[in-house]
């Protein structure tokens, strides 16, 4: 490659890099702390203990405001919950069914095939109970934010009691370090001992945030483990096949020239 071309490529790389860095002065959300997640990397899997604890945090804390509409109780079977456990969890919820033979709707305990029951009947009810703000569904939250897992972790541990002095807080808003604009309508949902873990793990804020993020990462991409497992096999196969194709290509072309 000629040198001017090299210079150009460097220029291209520099521009591309600049493009990645947010323009100075833009009101972007600040950096979020990068965490080690059991589900990142080529061989990542969801740590089962964290998943179970995360489910507990979701059910005991977040579920009073946030729905999880894409997950059915039966899905928990994919990550090691036994049919009995799933049955027991489902039965704690009531769902509307019907109409029955008299044409009446009726309530019954949820079954494994039902989805997690939303806390509010509709958007208006949700807003009415939350100062006008809408708690979003959490099923896809990890995929619906840039750098989702780290962002959500940062959000949950990112509350500050006292907003910086130059910030004028709006009525009913809480200061959060990573939320865009820093004013969020969700009160700090997690704190020390917000739950008492069934497995005896100490419920620090950090632990709770970490666990619920792991659970929600699973809820957003329940195919992740299968995807990565299959991916490793497929790529290994393709690499060997392609190497052999290269050898054949060399062989066939060896008589040219």
């Amino acid at each position: 490659m000629s040198t001017p071309m090299n210079k150009l490529l460097i220029a291209v790389a520099a521009v591309a890099f600049l493009g990645v860095a947010p323009p100075a002065g833009a009101a972007e959300a600040p950096e979020v702390p990068e965490q080690d997640w059991s589900f990142s990397g080529m061989f990542g899997t969801f740590e089962r203990g964290a998943l179970r604890r995360g489910l507990q945090v979701y059910r005991e804390v977040c579920a009073s405001c946030h729905s999880l509409s894409l997950i059915a109780f039966r899905n928990l079977g994919d990550v090691g919950f036994s049919p009995d456990e799933i049955q027991a969890i489902a039965e704690e919820y009531e769902v509307e069914d019907g109409p029955d033979d008299e044409g009446e709707m009726f309530m019954r305990p949820a079954k494994a095939s039902d989805r997690f029951v939303p806390p509010f009947a509709n958007e208006q009810a949700a807003r009415a109970s939350n100062n006008g703000a809408l708690p979003p569904d959490l099923s896809l939250m990890i995929k619906a934010r840039k750098n989702g897992a780290n962002y959500l972790y940062g959000l949950l541990i990112g509350y500050v009691e006292e907003a910086p002095e130059d910030v004028e807080m709006m009525e009913g808003m809480y200061y959060n370090k990573v939320f865009p604009g820093h004013q969020i309508a969700m009160a700090p949902p997690l704190f020390e001992e917000a739950v008492e873990y069934a497995d005896g793990t100490e419920a620090t804020l950090d632990q709770e945030a970490h666990d619920v993020v792991t659970f929600l990462a699973w809820a957003a991409q329940p195919e992740l483990e299968e995807r990565k497992r299959l991916g490793v096999k497929v790529l290994l196969f393709l690499i060997v096949l392609t190497a052999m194709l290269y050898a054949v290509k060399r062989k066939i072309w060896s008589d040219v020239h």
């Binding site: 393709l238 096949l241 392609t242 194709l245 290269y246 054949v248 290509k249 066939i252 072309w253």
Partner: peptide
């Protein structure tokens, strides 16, 4: 064969 190898990559 050259295209097949390229396809592999």
């Amino acid at each position: 064969i050259k295209d097949t190898f390229g396809l592999g990559v």
